[in-house]
Measured scan of single mutants.
Amino acid sequence: MEVVDPQQLGMFTEGELMSVGMDTFIHRIDSTEVIYQPRRKRAKLIGKYLMGDLLGEGSYGKVKEVLDSETLCRRAVKILKKKKLRRIPNGEANVKKEIQLLRRLRHKNVIQLVDVLYNEEKQKMYMVMEYCVCGMQEMLDSVPEKRFPVCQAHGYFCQLIDGLEYLHSQGIVHKDIKPGNLLLTTGGTLKISDLGVAEALHPFAADDTCRTSQGSPAFQPPEIANGLDTFSGFKVDIWSAGVTLYNITTGLYPFEGDNIYKLFENIGKGSYAIPGDCGPPLSDLLKGMLEYEPAKRFSIRQIRQHSWFRKKHPPAEAPVPIPPSPDTKDRWRSMTVVPYLEDLHGADEDEDLFDIEDDIIYTQDFTVPGQVPEEEASHNGQRRGLPKAVCMNGTEAAQLSTKSRAEGRAPNPARKACSASSKIRRLSACKQQ
């Protein structure tokens, strides 16, 4: 084909351009004929944790799935940006308080904090938690009735009371019990989460009196709706648990309003109706937990002794299953770290194939690490110290990083047969305790 000078094309009309061969290198194709290559998922490591896909996002930050490269346990990490926390009232204080509380709590029905990582340079905090497959609110939203069968609701409620009793025994008032803060594992274990607005009572406090509340409006008791200066913290949790039980068994809320002012007005009056299909035992329990006067409201001991709580409820309806993943529609909620794991395991070791967030990740503290002497050669063979940054567990980050890069360049065919977990650990520049 004859090559045409581009400067001469402006002298031709459209018809003349076609005659000189423009149609031979300008093609129009339908979008259905285009085959897009999927974007390669680059592996990203935060300390010893391999990052997966997004699980959810809230006002405080994002939650992603991660894999512990040492234990191969599935975890969830809450990623918090200090810049964003400053824009939220009491944001930083709530996060630090939640970390302090979770560090000393150990119960099967309370979410466990596994690790805390802090990135000084990017001003990011990573709260590594045990993995929960789904939230209770997500399960309720997945069915038209917006409720659980009585047998399933009873099982979840009993676990909620177990976890709540443990928190109260530790002198902690949750203040925000609701389905949105109750998570579930694949085995059906309920976990109380989000202790950001919780309050730890003084060890020598005479009672459970509280003065502040930041919980969700629909789950607040009349004493808070009416603006009382002080109130019983434990009875606030009992009320919120009662509203939660009402919601998961009926699909409704005892109090509603077009806006928060109308909602608080209705809560302050204390008038509500219980659907007739709840039955006398459940209705009596709800009335005891939603008692207007805090002094007359049920205690956890009274809830445990109630006939509806103690009764064994046979399954009359099919239980609400864990819904498919909202993004991938995966009904099994498979591990989202698998594509990243395959990338590390299947590809040659190259620095361009993975990302390490930083050479140094500070753990379990908000301060910069200490310094240790770096050896410097002298005339008599002895070495003197220069400062060298280290990880919180004493690992020399720069030395590990250099060693990792040197190993990656060394030709050794046997290394390709290593397991995925050992490869992740070798790529991680800074081991965590």
Rank of each mutant, 00 (worst) to 15 (best):
R425S: 13
S419D: 07
Q364E: 01
K64L: 13
Q123Y: 06
V133E: 03
Q100R: 10
Q100S: 07
Q112W: 03
E130R: 02
L341V: 10
Q137M: 13
E256A: 03
D365G: 14
L80I: 05
T244S: 03
P294Q: 11
G276L: 07
E357W: 05
L285R: 00
N266M: 02
R86P: 10
L341S: 05
I161Y: 01
N90R: 06
K312W: 13
Y126L: 02
I238F: 01
V63S: 09
K41P: 14
Q371I: 13
R425C: 09
S142Y: 07
P413L: 10
G381A: 07
I35L: 07
T185I: 02
Q302S: 12
L182R: 01
R415L: 15
H168G: 02
Y292V: 05
L117N: 12
I35M: 05
T367I: 11
Q305Y: 13
F264P: 11
S240T: 06
N90A: 07
Y166D: 00
E2K: 08
K312R: 14
C151M: 02
D194P: 00
S216R: 00
A406I: 14
L72R: 02
L353D: 15
A225L: 13
Q7E: 09
G227F: 07
K235Q: 14
P280D: 12
S283F: 03
E349Y: 05
L140G: 00
F219Y: 09
I192V: 10
G370D: 09
E376L: 11
S232R: 11
R104F: 08
I361K: 03
A410Y: 11
A295S: 12
Q112M: 05
M136L: 06
M139L: 08
D327T: 14
K44I: 08
N94P: 08
D207G: 05
E138L: 07
P222E: 01
D229S: 06
R383Q: 13
N259M: 10
Q382E: 08
E145H: 10
A398L: 08
T189F: 09
S31F: 04
I322N: 14
L117Y: 13
T402Y: 12
M289V: 05
D115E: 09
P321L: 08
C210V: 06
L427I: 10
N412R: 14
I88R: 15
R211M: 11
E70C: 11
R405S: 13
P294A: 11
L285Y: 00
N226W: 15
V114F: 06
G242V: 00
E357F: 05
D176F: 00
Q364M: 04
L286A: 01
S271M: 12
K97W: 02
P144S: 04
P6M: 03
P254Y: 01
G91H: 02
P217F: 12
S401P: 06
L50P: 05
I99S: 04
E70L: 06
V390R: 11
I161R: 00
M392A: 14
A420G: 13
K312S: 09
N226K: 04
E33F: 04
P221F: 00
V133Y: 14
T363M: 14
K262F: 03
K388Q: 08
F298E: 00
P275V: 03
T395E: 10
G394K: 14
F366A: 04
M22H: 15
W332G: 13
Y126R: 01
K262S: 06
C132G: 02
S271G: 05
F204W: 10
T186M: 02
Y36R: 10
Y49R: 02
A316L: 05
P314Q: 08
T209E: 08
L72Q: 09
N393K: 05
L286S: 00
L117E: 12
Y156P: 02
A76W: 00
G215H: 05
R87S: 06
K235N: 04
P217V: 01
H174P: 01
F231L: 04
Y60V: 03
R75Y: 13
L344H: 07
R297F: 00
L55W: 02
Q302E: 05
D352P: 14
R384Y: 13
A316V: 04
P89G: 01
L286D: 00
E120W: 03
S169G: 10
V390C: 06
I260N: 15
G242E: 01
K78Y: 00
G171R: 09
V390W: 02
T363Y: 08
A406Y: 06
T328S: 11
K416G: 13
E92Q: 08
S307T: 08
M139S: 04
A198R: 01
E65M: 02
S334F: 07
R297T: 00
L290E: 00
V390D: 11
E70S: 05
N266E: 01
S142T: 12
R75A: 15
F366L: 08
R74K: 07
Y118V: 06
D284N: 09
L386A: 14
C278N: 07
L182C: 08
D358R: 10
E349G: 05
F234G: 10
C132H: 08
D352L: 15
L245C: 01
I424C: 10
M51I: 08
D355S: 12
Q100L: 04
G408S: 14
K96V: 03
R425I: 05
K122H: 15
L245W: 00
G346I: 08
D30G: 13
F234E: 14
L113P: 02
R297G: 00
D358C: 13
R86I: 09
Q214Y: 08
S422V: 06
I172R: 02
A205G: 03
H154F: 02
H107A: 05
S401D: 08
G251R: 02
A206V: 02
T249D: 00
I79S: 04
R301S: 12
Q170M: 13
D343L: 05
E121Y: 10
Q7A: 06
P221Y: 00
R425V: 05
S213H: 15
L50A: 13
H202P: 04
I172A: 06
K48N: 05
L353V: 11
I46L: 09
E256D: 15
L400D: 08
P319R: 13
T212P: 05
V110H: 05
N181Y: 00
M22C: 08
E65H: 11
G188I: 06
A93S: 05
D343R: 07
V66S: 05
D348I: 11
A414S: 14
I267D: 03
A406R: 14
I303F: 02
K81T: 10
S283L: 05
S271V: 05
G279W: 06
L17P: 15
I360V: 12
L17A: 15
S307D: 12
A398W: 05
V63R: 00
P411K: 14
Y36I: 06
L45W: 15
Y118F: 02
G58M: 01
H27A: 08
R75F: 07
G408F: 09
G288L: 01
K287G: 09
F354L: 07
C151E: 04
A318M: 03
T336M: 03
D327Y: 10
L195F: 12
H306W: 00
V173L: 01
Q170G: 11
R106A: 12
G346N: 14
D327A: 09
R409D: 07
Y246W: 07
D207N: 03
S421I: 13
S142N: 08
H306E: 08
E16K: 01
R40P: 08
T328R: 13
L117F: 04
F204I: 09
P275L: 04
I224P: 05
K48L: 10
K311Y: 06
P280K: 15
G408V: 08
T230L: 04
F157L: 01
T185V: 05
E57P: 15
E120M: 07
F148K: 00
L344V: 11
I29F: 01
S169H: 12
E317V: 10
G288P: 00
A200V: 05
Y166P: 06
R147M: 06
R426G: 07
Q382D: 12
N380M: 13
I424G: 03
I274Y: 08
H313A: 10
V114C: 01
E342G: 06
T363N: 06
H306T: 13
E317M: 01
Q382G: 11
S271R: 06
L400N: 15
V338L: 11
K269P: 09
N266K: 01
E376V: 06
V337T: 15
V133L: 05
I356N: 12
L182S: 03
G242H: 00
M129D: 11
K146Q: 13
M18E: 14
P38G: 02
L117S: 01
K48S: 11
L183S: 03
N109I: 01
K388G: 10
G242C: 00
I303Q: 14
Q137A: 06
C132L: 04
V34F: 05
H306Y: 01
L17S: 10
P294L: 01
M129C: 09
G279V: 04
S428L: 04
I29M: 05
G394M: 15
S422F: 11
E317C: 12
K416V: 11
I360S: 07
D327G: 06
K416I: 13
M129T: 05
R40F: 10
F148N: 01
R333L: 10
D284T: 04
S422K: 13
E223I: 01
R87T: 12
W308R: 00
M129K: 10
C418V: 15
N380K: 11
K175Y: 03
G163C: 01
